[in-house]
Design a protein around this nucleic acid. Structure first.
Length: 160
DNA sequence: GCCAACGTTGGC
DNA sequence: GCCAACGTTGGC
């Protein structure tokens, strides 16, 4: 039996890396580096090939869900943590005992229009979404199948 | 730019 | 183990 895909949401600041940057990347693929939060790291490690994630623009005007990516490589050590010149360098992560991990994701599609945060907040069915919880700052977070269906419908796609 | 919420650090 | 100080996130 095939793996049942799970759904996620991954945040990126568009000034640092936007969905258009991903669309322009070779193979429309990127490694999702720089996650330095344990809970987000744990979610990264749960991800399986074929899982799907919302690409979310944080610190944006407006903050919005802007598309879908697919996990194409499961968690492996985040080498940027080993590089003292990297902004995300972390000396406690070592190649023989890595603390931080990343996955590779590929662009599935950019939504025809961004789905702004305030619009998501107005959906009754999304009230419990991790993204919308007060104080929630997780940069990698799970999305339920129900939430996924609502968001895809908002984006103009009928649920699969 | 402000600031609330959260996570981490480190003294004790 | 407590908790104050500090740094970061991210909406507004």
């Amino acid at each position: 039996m095939a793996h049942h895909p799970r759904y996620w949401l991954m945040k990126s600041e568009p000034a640092a890396f936007s969905i258009d940057d991903l669309a322009a990347a070779p193979g429309r693929l990127t490694c999702w580096d720089g996650v330095r939060n344990y809970q987000a790291r744990n979610y990264l490690r749960e991800m399986k090939k074929g899982d799907l994630a919302l690409f979310y623009h944080s610190n944006a005007d407006p903050p919005a869900a802007v598309g879908i990516v697919e996990v194409v490589r499961e968690a492996y050590p985040d080498h940027t943590a080993f590089d003292p010149t990297d902004h995300h360098y972390d000396p406690k992560s070592r190649p023989d005992r890595p603390t931080w991990f990343m996955v590779d994701v590929a662009l599935v599609r950019k939504f025809p229009r961004p789905l702004p945060l305030d619009e998501l907040r107005r959906q009754a069915g999304l009230r419990r979404m991790v993204l919308l919880r007060k104080g929630s700052r997780l940069s990698v977070q799970p999305v339920t199948p129900g939430e996924w269906a609502i968001i895809l419908k908002l984006a103009g796609h009928e649920p699969a």
